[in-house]
């Protein structure tokens, strides 16, 4: 890929990733966040977090489809960090606008309300991933250990989807699309690995004969 194309695509990614929070900020300043701004901020940041996690998880399986798509890896860290950013804004929304910084209320919520427990767990799982996202951290940890640590994103995504299901009213199917797509992306990994191994075996057998 040409350097200029890469810069253009990165710029577009930044704009797209900042768009939802920009909309919220604009809405907050102009007081145009609709009927229930608190709920709007909570829902929008939560939704964007899951969306970005999903796109981040899609990078590897999509990249494996064709050698020409190798450049996608250059976007994974950016997308993952934006997922963490939105997850953090989502957490701050809860802490400030729902719990009003009341530590006792938050502890009670986390102990009593499983959807909050699950949401907090998902966010906590993303913290070490964001913290070790620098090149320095990758070198320091070594590629193998770093890779193993970053498998936590699978757990975080599953926790995020469960959090969504437990948050919506019984009978509401809104989390279904994320559930299906994330499940497919997680399943794609072992399936692609298996296909790859079969191909390697076939090549090896060809060469042997």
């Amino acid at each position: 890929m040409k350097r200029s194309t890469l810069i253009l695509l990165k710029t577009l990614t930044w704009v797209a990733c900042l768009w939802p929070v920009g909309q919220l900020a604009w809405g907050a300043v102009t007081n145009s966040l609709g009927a229930d701004p608190t709920a709007r901020i909570a829902l929008s940041t939560g939704y964007t977090t899951l969306m970005l996690l999903t796109i981040t998880l899609a990078i590897t399986p999509v990249r494996r489809l064709s050698p020409g798509l190798g450049w996608l890896i250059k976007f994974r860290r950016l997308l993952g960090l934006f997922a963490f950013f939105y997850g953090s804004v989502h957490m701050v929304t809860y802490v400030a606008l729902y719990a009003a910084f009341d530590v006792n209320a938050m502890m009670a919520d986390i102990a009593k309300r499983r959807f909050i427990t699950m949401g907090v767990a998902a966010w906590l799982l993303l913290v070490p991933l964001a913290a070790t996202s620098t090149n320095w951290a990758i070198r320091k940890l070594g590629g193998k250990r770093w890779n193993r640590l970053h498998k936590l994103i699978y757990v975080a995504a599953v926790c995020g989807v469960i959090h969504y299901w437990w948050q919506v009213k019984s009978g509401v199917l809104a989390p279904a699309p994320f559930t299906v797509v994330i499940a497919a992306l997680l399943l794609a990994r072992p399936v692609q690995g298996w296909l790859q191994r079969r191909k390697v075996q076939a090549v090896a057998m060809d060469q042997a004969s």
Binding site: L33, A35, D109, Q167
Partner: peptide
Amino acid sequence: VDHPRWSQKTERRVGLPFYSQR
């Protein structure tokens, strides 16, 4: 009496800015 998934002690008044809804 809380809803199992959230507290019912407070509410958000519709139509107010996010910092003064509670």
